[in-house]
Design a protein around this nucleic acid. Structure first.
Lengths: 177, 177
DNA sequence: GCGGACATGTAAGAAGTTACATGATTAG
DNA sequence: CTAATCATGTAACTTCTTACATGTCCGC
């Protein structure tokens, strides 16, 4: 058991508000979409396993077989444990992998690829900024605070990606002369 | 067939120099370690599948059953195709996931976590800089050029991560007052 | 000869994706 | 009554990780 981040994403989303699998999917698709995407299939499976292991409980049952889960003390403890233990996981980046092998393209194609990457980063940046504007920052809860931190990370990342792609594009066009 | 990046990493590593699975593992563990890590088990399996599909050939056999693979025309074409098609894959970040749920820690623990993250980014940055200094940049080949671009991306990423972690840490300590 | 590097593979399991399958409730 | 939403699950498949298994060659 080394990774298991999906498990902790589910636990984290249950901290303040109990939820059904259906509710959780909505949270995954909004707040966690850019951080830890998950499929419906995964979420329901993980909920069953977590309940089985006593990390969450079925607190209430509703219409259509709805099961509303809450975090148990053991679940909260597990989340805290995971947060504190630091394990820098390997990061895979297919974007960077492409950069590595860009040499098999001619200069024009490579520059084109980088230009598109810059555009994409700019678009992502704009989308995130819009999300930031649309959110209600009047609340002062702990989740709001940390959501802000994660959002700022995203903004900085996209800014960096755009600048880098522009720089890299200029490197290529100047080397092609 | 949407992802398949391991396949393209293998193809890319075979572009200029033929190699055995054993050779490729060394390349994965050095040049591609921070971009697309792979295990021995994966590499051998993928080589067999690629040879089966005609994207690579066994060009020579050596001692100890060594099989030296070369890229075929079809393999190079497939690599080019993959490079040009743009698909921004979902990125998972357990580090960011932790930030999201940092609210369940007290301010001291959270600040501690961010301080460690800043240190880690600084260390990674230093390691990459050292790698940069140790490499022979006198060669002017296409792989060298693009390796430089990828390296610069890494340097910028780590710099950004360090700055962000420091900023986030200050946000938390000031909010805790 | 013997240890370390070279060299290739298989097996079992965890994690993730896509598609299928089914049905209940509610708002209009 | 009927369409959209709510709601849960299973099956098949791919990808990745960890561990096991085996054997050869080369330098000293």
């Amino acid at each position: 058991m080394v990774g298991m981040s999906l498990r902790h994403a589910v636990l984290g989303l249950l901290v303040d508000q109990p939820a059904s699998g259906y509710d959780l999917m909505k949270r995954f698709n909004t707040s966690l979409a850019n951080v830890w995407p998950a499929t419906q299939s995964q979420v329901y499976g993980e909920l069953a396993r977590l309940a089985d292991g006593g990390l969450i409980d079925v607190a209430a049952e509703g219409p259509r077989g709805r099961k509303e889960y809450t975090l148990t003390d053991a679940g909260l403890a597990e989340l805290r444990r995971w947060l504190i233990e630091d394990k820098p996981e390997p990061r895979r980046s297919s974007a960077l992998l492409r950069v590595f092998f860009m040499g098999v393209l001619d200069a024009e194609q490579a520059a084109d690829y980088l230009a598109k990457a810059a555009e994409q980063a700019a678009a992502d940046h704009a989308a995130l900024r819009q999300l930031q504007d649309s959110l209600d920052w009047t609340e002062q809860g702990p989740l709001t605070t940390n959501g802000r931190l994660a959002l700022e990370y995203g903004l900085r990342l996209y800014a960096m990606q755009e600048e880098w792609a522009q720089w890299a594009s200029s490197q290529i066009t100047s080397a092609a002369e």
